[in-house]
Deep mutational scan, measured.
Amino acid sequence: LELTLRVGDKTWHFKDVDEEFVRHLEELLKRGAHEREIEEIIREWLR
């Protein structure tokens, strides 16, 4: 999967994204996660 995600003024483009990561992001967005929380999840995933 490829994913382009825009949060606030930042845009990330990922290739070979894990479906579990996408589901986790979807859940965060559904519950109205704040920009900082989403950025933290992305940084963790990139490690």
Rank of each mutant, 00 (worst) to 15 (best):
L1Q: 14
L1W: 13
L1F: 14
L1D: 12
L1R: 12
E2Y: 04
E2D: 15
E2G: 07
E2F: 06
E2C: 05
E2R: 05
L3P: 02
L3W: 04
L3A: 04
L3C: 01
L3K: 03
L3N: 02
L3R: 02
L3M: 06
T4L: 09
T4Y: 09
T4F: 08
T4R: 05
T4K: 07
L5C: 03
L5W: 02
L5Y: 02
R6L: 14
R6Q: 15
R6Y: 04
R6G: 07
R6S: 15
V7W: 06
V7H: 03
G8A: 04
G8E: 02
G8C: 02
G8P: 00
D9Q: 07
D9N: 10
K10G: 03
K10P: 00
K10D: 04
T11I: 14
T11Y: 09
T11C: 07
W12C: 01
W12F: 10
W12I: 03
W12K: 00
W12N: 00
W12P: 00
H13Q: 06
H13Y: 15
H13D: 02
H13V: 14
H13C: 06
H13F: 11
F14R: 00
F14P: 00
F14I: 07
F14W: 01
F14H: 00
K15M: 09
K15D: 07
K15R: 13
K15F: 08
K15G: 03
K15V: 07
D16I: 12
D16R: 13
D16T: 13
D16N: 14
D16C: 02
V17K: 13
V17W: 04
D18G: 03
D18T: 12
E19C: 03
E20I: 12
E20V: 14
E20S: 13
E20R: 11
E20F: 10
E20Q: 13
E20L: 13
E20H: 12
F21T: 04
F21R: 03
F21S: 05
F21Q: 05
F21H: 02
F21L: 04
F21G: 02
F21K: 05
V22W: 03
V22F: 06
V22C: 02
V22E: 02
V22Q: 02
V22R: 04
V22D: 01
R23Y: 08
R23N: 12
R23D: 05
R23Q: 09
H24P: 01
H24W: 07
L25K: 00
L25A: 04
L25T: 02
L25N: 00
E26D: 08
E26A: 10
E26N: 09
E26T: 09
E26S: 07
E26L: 11
E26Y: 11
E26I: 11
E27Y: 12
E27N: 13
E27S: 10
L28D: 02
L28T: 07
L28H: 07
L28I: 07
L28F: 05
L28W: 05
L29Q: 10
L29D: 03
L29R: 04
L29P: 01
L29W: 05
K30I: 10
K30V: 10
R31N: 15
R31M: 13
R31G: 12
G32R: 00
G32N: 06
G32C: 04
G32F: 05
G32H: 07
G32E: 06
A33L: 09
A33V: 13
A33Q: 09
A33W: 12
A33G: 08
A33P: 03
H34S: 14
H34N: 14
E35N: 09
E35K: 06
E35W: 11
E35P: 13
E35Q: 11
R36T: 13
R36P: 06
R36F: 11
R36K: 14
R36A: 14
E37V: 07
E37D: 11
E37L: 05
E37H: 08
E37P: 02
I38M: 06
I38T: 01
I38W: 03
I38A: 02
I38N: 01
I38D: 01
E39Y: 06
E39G: 05
E39N: 12
E39D: 10
E39K: 04
E40R: 12
E40V: 09
E40H: 10
I41V: 15
I41D: 04
I41A: 13
I41N: 08
I41T: 11
I41E: 13
I41F: 15
I42N: 01
I42Q: 01
I42W: 11
I42V: 06
R43Q: 14
R43P: 01
R43W: 13
R43F: 11
R43Y: 15
R43L: 13
R43S: 11
R43T: 13
R43G: 09
E44N: 08
E44V: 07
E44G: 05
E44P: 00
W45V: 04
W45G: 02
W45D: 01
W45C: 01
W45F: 12
W45A: 06
L46R: 04
L46P: 03
L46V: 09
L46H: 07
R47V: 14
R47E: 14
R47G: 13
R47K: 14
R47D: 12
